[in-house]
Design a protein around this nucleic acid. Structure first.
Lengths: 418, 418
DNA sequence: CTGTTAGCGCGTTCAC
DNA sequence: GTGAACGCGCTAACAG
């Protein structure tokens, strides 16, 4: 059906192996031969057979990027940044360099997440990047963790971006792990609040990792400097959601707000929990009384979308009409909140303040401009991409945390005097 | 390294062939044997080797979705819809049904578009869906067209979504080609009112379809029912950008506006051109004088993004301070325009009206709610997905057009009396 | 530097 | 209903 390597070889008067070498570019070939081969390729419009090549080399150039919601710019920005790193860059590493970076939309469903990972594993993907908060579920979390480890053991680079690192596979016998919920020390112990102890991740009955640590098949010739040694080789770029949320609430507190509503995301997402933790940390630090009200002032939406904000705001207003400020799970939710508030005849920020999270591009243009917390999504994505390709040494401990920055704008103001 | 079919076969006490048959599910296998095999698969955590399977079967389950900007919800919605069709649906077609639907971000660059197509061709993708307006470029367009035809000839289903159908490959000798820059005659000769006459499903100048039609290599054994026969087999779901734009401008005209600015997208995108055409059609139908001003009142942005709107609006104001309304290339651009206008101290819609296009989710929530044109993006994506999988018979002529609907909201109002 | 020789893991005829 | 071969197109040792 299609033209094959052999066809090209015949046309160029060389052997198939030579053509392969020319195309791979990672082997010395005489100048003249090379041009002849290249010309034959042109003339025949030859296109490598990916599956065959992948089979023979037992490696592919597929890189999967998993996102919860492809229609959400939060993920679009990260995914775009990751992809931008795949392009050409030719990090001195021989080969053609071009990876097929590809984004997979899980729709927030754990099952689809697993399904995609299986499909990617089936394709023997070169790398997989999981973006956004993880879903915490007693059944799903261990399943995900084990699948990820298997991927990593199979030679696929695994990068987590925007979620906490995987819990340790299992405490080594004798060395009691520091509580399942450990994280890079980005949080201060403070207030003893110590958010929800997370479901002690995948406690495997067998324990033990493969002794040798998976050897990367692509025998790295270049001085990676980095210690890919780190545990399973799964690296993570996590966001300082907690710290950002905390600063945001402190901002509101400083403005004088004392009755702050919170429209959170789905309860089982780590992002949701971390942001809520930060919020409560700030509340508790200010006064225990505020912390007590927090529960009642929090409503969980079913997703990080507009309608969650709209409905959540209405619910909040019903429960506690005297709220003077509302914090949203993210910017999109914040917009939904604004819409609901306006529909109720409330002015922002005169009657009520609203704040978001993420600082998506549209937030600065909203009317009024949205107070929010900026997350360097693009940078994080770039970093994740580099890590996935092994172009950058993994951070110490395998975890890098990117900071969140408060963006105080027009949607927040002191509460009304009455 | 990994567990293979043979391992599973051994464990189950059968031959590799049998395991393969069980997994493919498209062949009779004794009940007992099947369960034993399945159990062995479970126990060994066997995962099919995609490349090997693809090589042997010369087909893969990869489906590529190309988008211009992954951070733009316009594409996210379409891509998500396409993906949703890939899931399980098991359209009676034997096999496991699960496709690896995957989105590729071209960033609007023709080169990257071509690159991705090459990569997908290399993977022997089952289908490719190109979304969003095409880039019209004397060099790129033919290159793209020929690559798409080769893909289609190679057995990959090709679906265009949101762009015009490909021009006929080349007039048969004797029938002079309608000029390189041609397109399916979706435009009426202008001047003539000939309103929303829906782009007559690609009224090709020649009428005929390619006689032979490239024989599908995959000697189709299964009764596809559908007539994949159509020309190259490339089907398209196009948007009625022109009709929608026209109705939008008519709306403004009816409100009394006579000096309407237009912040268009990149000049070389078909979407840009189609929308502008519709705009001018309405203008011309109203009065030739308005049409004359149109050129001066149009500014092109470098992309369909916020800053194009912001900058464009400023430029427009500088050139023609007395504009009473501004139409944007799309909703995102419209938001940028609103921001610029507000920064200039203008109120919307009291001082100036603004309208967008697409009706993205956030548009209804903007302040004021944005007047725009709704495109059924989700439906279009679903349709494209079905077409790609051959689950739905291609529309007559290979072209389906989805309609655009005017959404008149608060951002447009009659011009000020002065 | 280049040709030869083996498989990579699976789908698919064939016989049985 | 099941097993035994063969080959998909390419890469990776080895020779030379």
């Amino acid at each position: 059906m299609a033209v094959t390597l052999a066809d090209v070889a015949a046309r160029a008067g060389v052997s198939a192996a030579t053509v392969s070498r020319v195309l791979s570019g990672n082997y010395p070939v005489a100048g003249g031969t090379r041009t002849r081969v290249l010309r034959a390729v042109e003339e025949l419009e030859y296109v490598v057979n990916g599956p065959a090549s992948a089979l023979a080399a037992s490696s592919s150039d597929l890189v999967g990027i998993l996102v919860h919601d492809i229609a959400d710019p939060f993920f679009g920005i990260i995914a775009g940044a990751v992809q931008s790193e795949m392009g050409d860059g030719d990090g001195s590493g021989g080969r053609n360099g071009r990876k097929l970076a590809v984004v997979c939309n899980t729709g927030g469903s754990p099952e689809r997440e697993l399904t995609y990972l299986t499909l990617l594993q089936r394709q023997r993907a070169a790398a997989v990047v999981l973006t956004g908060g993880a879903v915490e579920h007693p059944e799903h979390s261990p399943a995900l963790a084990s699948r990820l480890r298997r991927l990593a053991d199979g030679g696929t680079a695994v990068v987590l971006c925007g979620r906490p690192p995987l819990p340790e596979p299992d405490a080594a016998p004798g060395a009691p792990a520091p509580v399942p919920g450990q994280r890079a020390a980005t949080d201060e112990p403070a207030g003893g609040t110590e958010g929800g102890a997370r479901p002690g991740g995948g406690v495997r009955p067998d324990g033990g990792i493969r002794p040798g640590g998976s050897a990367r098949p692509e025998g790295g010739t270049r001085p990676d400097g980095g210690a890919r040694s780190e545990g399973s080789g799964i690296v993570t770029v996590s966001f300082d959601n907690k710290g950002g949320a905390r600063r945001l609430t402190e901002h509101l507190l400083a403005l004088g707000h004392r009755t702050i509503g919170y429209v959170a995301g789905p309860a089982e997402r780590t992002t949701t929990r971390d942001r809520l933790d930060g919020h409560r940390l700030a509340l508790g630090a200010h006064s225990p009384a505020l912390l007590e009200d927090a529960e009642r002032l929090t409503v969980h939406g079913g997703a990080y979308d507009r309608s969650a904000g709209y409905d959540g705001a209405l619910e909040l207003l019903r429960r506690t009409p005297r709220v003077t400020a509302v914090i949203a799970a993210n910017d999109t939710v914040a917009l939904g909140i604004c819409a609901a508030l306006r529909d109720q005849g409330l002015r922002i920020p005169e009657d009520i303040s609203v704040a978001g999270f993420d600082d998506l591009p549209f937030s600065a243009d909203a009317a009024p401009a949205l107070t929010t917390v900026r997350l360097p999504l693009h940078d994080a994505g770039v970093r994740a991409g580099r890590l996935a390709l092994g172009r950058q040494a993994p951070p110490p401990g395998g975890v890098a945390t990117v900071q969140a920055e408060l963006m105080a704008r027009a949607s927040t103001a002191p509460p009304r005097a009455d």
